[in-house]
C-alpha cells in the first residue's frame, strides 16, 4: 500500500497540508499497489525446471555408472565414470540399428504428412466446397482415436500387404494422427496469409503449382517448420504402433530398449545410456525451432 503516495498527490494543491484524510472521506483510496511477483516467478520457474530436469539428470547419471555402482551404492554422481554403456550401444548393430530405424520412419512420416497435408490445408483455408466442414472435423476425429484401437487392425492390414517389419508401414501408420494435425496446423498458418497474394500471383500469370512452390510455400515457411516439428515429435515418441508393426528389421530403438530390459535382465547402465541417446535428437530439434515453439504450440491460432 502506498499511503504516502496518496498523501503526496492530494497535498499537491496546497503543498504541506495533508489532505489524505479528506481524500479518504470522499471514498477514494489509492489502489493497492500492483504487485510485481517477479521474484515469485523466478522461484516457481526454477523449481519447475528442477522438477523437469531431475529425472533426466538421474538417467544421465546412471548412464555413466557401472552396473555394480548402480545396484550396490547410492550416489548422486558417478564415482567411477565409465563410457562402457555407450560403447555397448555404438558397437552392437542391434542397438544402433534401432536408432537408424526410428529416424528412418520418422523422417518418412514427416515428409509424407507434410506432402499430403499442404494441398489439403490450402483447400480448407481458401475454398468452400461440398462437405468441407464435415471433412475437416472428421479428419480431426482421427486424432482422437486411441492408437490401442488400431494396433490389431493395422497389424492385419499391413500383413495383408506384406508390409510388416518395414519402415514405410510405421510411417504410414503414424499418418493416422500426424496428417490431421498437419492439416490443422498448416491451415492455421495459411489463413494468416491474405488471399490477395494468391489473386495477384494468378493475375501475374503464375500457374497453381508454380505459385504454390515459388510464392506460397516461402510465405508459410515457419508454419511448415512448426508442422515438421510436431510430426517429428509425435512420430518419434510413439511406441505402441511402431512396436506392433515391426519385428526385427525395422524395430525402433525404443522397442529394443523394452525388449532388452526384459530379456537380458537388468543391464541398467546400457538401458540408461540408450534412454539418454533417445533424448538427444529431440533436444537438437527443439534447439532449432526454439523461436517458433511458442507460436507453434498454439498451432498458429492465438
Amino acid at each position: 500500500m502506498s499511503t504516502g503516495a496518496t498523501k503526496s498527490i492530494d497535498t499537491g494543491r496546497q503543498p504541506g497540508t495533508p489532505t489524505a484524510a479528506s481524500a479518504k472521506a470522499r471514498g477514494f483510496v489509492a489502489p493497492p499497489k500492483l504487485r510485481r511477483p517477479r521474484h515469485l516467478g523466478w522461484l516457481v520457474m526454477t523449481l519447475y525446471l528442477i522438477f523437469l530436469l531431475l529425472p533426466i539428470y538421474w538417467l544421465v547419471n546412471m548412464s555413466f555408472k557401472t552396473n555394480v555402482e548402480i545396484t550396490n551404492t547410492f550416489s548422486l554422481w558417478p564415482n567411477d565414470p565409465t563410457l562402457r554403456n555407450y560403447r555397448v550401444i555404438f558397437t552392437d548393430p542391434s542397438w544402433y540399428g534401432g536408432y537408424i530405424n526410428s529416424i528412418t520412419y520418422v523422417v518418412m512420416n514427416t515428409v509424407i504428412s507434410i506432402a499430403v497435408a499442404l494441398p489439403a490445408a490450402y483447400a480448407f483455408s481458401r475454398y468452400r466446397f461440398l462437405g468441407d466442414k464435415h471433412l475437416f472435423f472428421w479428419l480431426l476425429t482421427n486424432r482422437m482415436a486411441p492408437p490401442a484401437v488400431f494396433a490389431l487392425p493395422f497389424f492385419q492390414l499391413y500383413s495383408a500387404f506384406g508390409l510388416i517389419d518395414t519402415h514405410i508401414a510405421v510411417a504410414l501408420a503414424h499418418c493416422l494422427f500426424n496428417v490431421p494435425l498437419a492439416v490443422w496446423i498448416l491451415e492455421g498458418f495459411m489463413s494468416g496469409v491474405p488471399r490477395e497474394i494468391d489473386e495477384t500471383a494468378y493475375i501475374d500469370g503464375y500457374s497453381f503449382p508454380r505459385f504454390f512452390v515459388k510464392i506460397f510455400m516461402p510465405l508459410i515457411a515457419s508454419g511448415i517448420g512448426v508442422t515438421a516439428f510436431f510430426c517429428f515429435m509425435f512420430s518419434w515418441v510413439e511406441l505402441l504402433l511402431a512396436r506392433t508393426l515391426t519385428t526385427t528389421a525395422a524395430k525402433p530403438i525404443a522397442a529394443i530398449m523394452t525388449r532388452t530390459v526384459s530379456a537380458s535382465g537388468l543391464d541398467w547402465g546400457v538401458l540408461a545410456a540408450a534412454g539418454v541417446l533417445t533424448i538427444i535428437p529431440g533436444a537438437l530439434v527443439i534447439w532449432f525451432v526454439r523461436n517458433y515453439i511458442a507460436k507453434g504450440f498454439a498451432l498458429g491460432r492465438v
Binding site: 503516495a5 498527490i9 499537491g12 503543498p15 500492483l34
Partner: peptide, 16 residues
C-alpha cells in the same frame, strides 16, 4: 511534478 510534488519515482497506479 504534480502540483509541485515530485512524482517521478512513483508508479502509475499511485499517480492518480
Amino acid at each position: 511534478l504534480f502540483d509541485g510534488v515530485d512524482v517521478t519515482a512513483m508508479p502509475t497506479e499511485a499517480r492518480n
